[in-house]
C-alpha cells in the first residue's frame, strides 16, 4: 500500500482517542414495532476521514445511516454535527443544516427524479442553500459534472439516458454541490457492475482528498471498503460489535462475527476440483 494510505491509517487511530469528531453518533437506539433495529450505537467521524460501517441485511447499518442524515428520528441518542444535536432542529433550521450532511444512495436510478433533467437535480441544492442566480447555478452544475467525470451538456438529459455508473456520478455531483462537511454513502456501488465499482470508489476517494469531507461508508462487502476505509465498524443485530482501524479488522479481527465476514469474502484464487477426476 502507498505511503499516503499508511499515513491515513495512523491518523485514524489517533482520531479514535479524541472525544468527539465532526459527526458523532451517541447511543443511537431505534426500534420498529417490537423489533429493535439499532441498539446503542456510538461512533465519531473526523474531517477527511472515512468510517466504513459493514454488516449484512438486518444488521441495522442502513437504519443507522438514515438516522445520521435525519430521515429517521432515533428513539434515543443523539447525532451531533460540530457538537450540535440535529434532533433538536426542526423545519427551516433543519433544512438549512442539511447542506452540511449529504447522502449518496444505493440505487442510482431511484435516487434521481425520473421526470427532472439531471442539471436541475444537481442544481436543486444550490437553489435551496446558496444565493446563486440561474446563470451561476448553470456554471456550477457544469463544473460539478466535469468534476465527477461527465460532460456539461449532459445536464439537459433525463436520468434514464444514463448507465448505472453515470447515474451514481450524477447523484454524487448533487451530494457535493454545496460542499458538504460529511457525506453518508449507503451502499453506493453495490447496484453497479464490477467494472464500474472501482470507477466510483476512485471518484469518491479523489473528491474526499480534494474537499476533505468526512465520510460514512455503509456496505455489506468487506472487499469493497478495503481500500476506502480508515476505520471500520462491524454491525450485527443492531449492535456495533467491533470498531477499529481498517488494517486491524482484516488482519486481526477480534470478534467472531468479524472473522466470519472476512472468511466469507470470495477468493479469486479458490479452485474447484475437476469433475472428471472425481
Amino acid at each position: 500500500m502507498s505511503g499516503a494510505e499508511q499515513a491515513r491509517g495512523g491518523g485514524a487511530s489517533g482520531q479514535e482517542q479524541r472525544a468527539g469528531g465532526l459527526l458523532e453518533a451517541r447511543g443511537l437506539v431505534k426500534t420498529f414495532g417490537r423489533r429493535p433495529a439499532v441498539r446503542d450505537v456510538s461512533f465519531a467521524v473526523g474531517a477527511g476521514e472515512t468510517l466504513a460501517i459493514v454488516g449484512e441485511s438486518g444488521s441495522g447499518k442502513s437504519t443507522t445511516a438514515r438516522m445520521l442524515v435525519g430521515l429517521l428520528r432515533p428513539d434515543r441518542g443523539q447525532v451531533l454535527l460540530d457538537g450540535d444535536d440535529l434532533a433538536r432542529l426542526r423545519g427551516r433550521a433543519l433544512r438549512a443544516r442539511r447542506k452540511d450532511l449529504q447522502m449518496v444512495f444505493q440505487d442510482p436510478l431511484g435516487s434521481l427524479n425520473p421526470a427532472t433533467r439531471v442539471g436541475a437535480s444537481i442544481a436543486e441544492p444550490l437553489l435551496l442553500h446558496t444565493g446563486l442566480d440561474a446563470a451561476a447555478r448553470r456554471d456550477r452544475v457544469a463544473e460539478l459534472l466535469r468534476q465527477v467525470g461527465l460532460r456539461p451538456e449532459h445536464a439537459d438529459r433525463l436520468p434514464r439516458a444514463f448507465s448505472g455508473g453515470q447515474r451514481q456520478r450524477i447523484a454524487i455531483a448533487r451530494a457535493i454541490a454545496c460542499g458538504p462537511r460529511v457525506l453518508i454513502c449507503d451502499e453506493p456501488v453495490s447496484a453497479l457492475d464490477v467494472s464500474t465499482q472501482a470507477q466510483i470508489l476512485d471518484l469518491l476517494a479523489g473528491l474526499r482528498e480534494a474537499t476533505g469531507f468526512g465520510c460514512v461508508f455503509i456496505s455489506h462487502d468487506l472487499a469493497v471498503v478495503r481500500l476506502v476505509a480508515d476505520r471500520i465498524g462491524v454491525m450485527r443485530g443492531g449492535e456495533l460489535v467491533e470498531l477499529g482501524p481498517a488494517e486491524q479488522i482484516y488482519t486481526d479481527p477480534r470478534h467472531k462475527y468479524t472473522r466470519e465476514l472476512v472468511a466469507a469474502v470470495p477468493s479469486l484464487t479458490a479452485r474447484r476440483g475437476s469433475h472428471e477426476r472425481s
Binding site: 467494472s195 472501482a198 468487506l222 472487499a223 478495503r226 470470495p266 479469486l268
Partner: peptide
C-alpha cells in the same frame, strides 16, 4: 476490477 483483489 474485482473488489476481492483488495483483500490481497
Amino acid at each position: 476490477a474485482a473488489p476481492e483483489n483488495a483483500m490481497r
